[in-house]
C-alpha cells in the first residue's frame, strides 16, 4: 500500500517536473512561433472569442446572485448601500479571475487538449516533424500564447458582466439608489489593487497555468481514444486544483 502511494507521489512529481520542462521548451519556441502569427490569432479567436458567451452568461448570473445574497445580509444591518461595493470587490478580487479561469479550463482547456491529443493520435504532429516543421512552435506555443492573452481579457468581461448583474438585482429589482450604488463602488474600488492585481495579474497567472496544463496534457497523451479522454479529464482536474491553490498563494502575497 505504502509503495503504491509512493508510486503515485513519484508519478505526480514526475508529471510536474515534465510539465516544467515542457514550459521551458514552449518559452524557448515562442520567438519561432511568431512566424506563425496567423495561427496564434486564430487560436486567440478560438479560445477567447468563442468562450465569450459562457463567460458573459456566468458573469451575469454570479453578479446577480451575489447582489441578491448581499442585499439580504446587509439589510439586517441597514447597510444595503454597500451592496455595490461588496459585489465589485468580491468579483474583482476573487470570483472574477477564479471563476473565469475555471470556466476557461472547462471550455477552452479541454478542447485544446482534445485537439492536440487527436493530432498526436492521427500522426499529424509526427507528419509536421517529418515536414521539418516544429510542432512545439506551430501547435503548442500559439495555443499557449492564446490562453495567456485571452484569459485576462475574459476576466475583465466577466467582471463587467458581474457588476452589471449586481446592479441589475440591487438597483433595478431591489431599489437601491443608483447614485449610491456607483459612488460607493467607485470610492472603494482601487484600480491598482483590485483591477490590476486582482483581475489582470491573477488572470495572467491562471492563463499560464491552465494553458500549460491543457497543451501539455494534449501533447503527451497516449495516442488512443482512451488516452485522449483521460488527458481531457486530467486537464480539468489539474487546472481546477492549480487555479484554487495558486489563487491562495497569489492572494496571500497581494493582499
Amino acid at each position: 500500500m505504502s509503495s503504491r502511494n509512493d508510486n503515485v507521489v513519484v508519478r505526480s512529481l514526475a508529471q510536474i517536473g515534465a510539465c516544467g520542462l515542457f514550459l521551458i521548451t514552449i518559452l524557448a519556441a515562442i520567438p519561432r512561433s511568431f512566424r506563425h502569427g496567423r495561427e496564434t490569432v486564430r487560436q486567440i479567436w478560438f479560445v477567447g472569442a468563442m468562450s465569450l458567451t459562457i463567460v458573459m452568461t456566468c458573469g451575469l448570473f454570479v453578479g446577480m446572485v451575489l447582489g441578491l445574497q448581499l442585499y439580504d445580509v446587509l439589510s439586517i444591518f441597514g447597510g444595503t448601500s454597500a451592496t455595490g461595493t461588496v459585489v465589485a470587490i468580491a468579483i474583482y478580487r476573487e470570483l472574477g479571475p477564479v471563476v473565469t479561469a475555471l470556466l476557461f479550463a472547462g471550455r477552452a482547456g479541454t478542447s485544446v487538449t482534445a485537439e492536440i491529443g487527436l493530432m498526436r493520435a492521427t500522426d499529424q504532429l509526427d507528419a509536421m516533424e517529418m515536414m521539418a516543421v516544429d510542432p512545439i512552435a506551430y501547435v503548442a506555443a500559439p495555443r499557449f500564447l492564446a490562453g495567456v492573452v485571452a484569459l485576462p481579457l475574459l476576466g475583465l468581461v466577466f467582471c463587467a458582466m458581474g457588476v452589471f448583474g449586481g446592479h441589475l438585482v440591487g438597483v433595478t429589482w431591489l431599489g437601491i439608489d443608483n447614485g449610491t450604488f456607483w459612488s460607493n463602488m467607485t470610492a472603494t474600488v482601487d484600480i491598482h489593487k483590485d483591477i490590476v492585481n486582482g483581475v489582470l495579474l491573477k488572470s495572467f497567472a491562471f492563463g499560464i497555468v491552465v494553458s500549460l496544463i491543457a497543451v501539455f496534457q494534449g501533447y503527451t497523451t497516449p495516442p488512443t481514444s482512451e488516452g485522449v479522454a483521460y488527458a481531457t479529464t486530467r486537464t480539468v482536474v489539474a487546472s481546477s486544483i492549480a487555479i484554487l491553490a495558486l489563487d491562495f498563494v497569489l492572494t496571500s502575497f497581494l493582499i
Partner: peptide, 27 residues
Amino acid sequence: LRERIGYLFQNSALLTDFDVFENVAFP
C-alpha cells in the same frame, strides 16, 4: 535533412484543419 525526404504515413496524417490544397501547400 528532412526537407529532402518525403514520408508517407500509414494513415496519411493529413492536417484536418486544412483542405487538400492547403495540405499540399503547407510545406
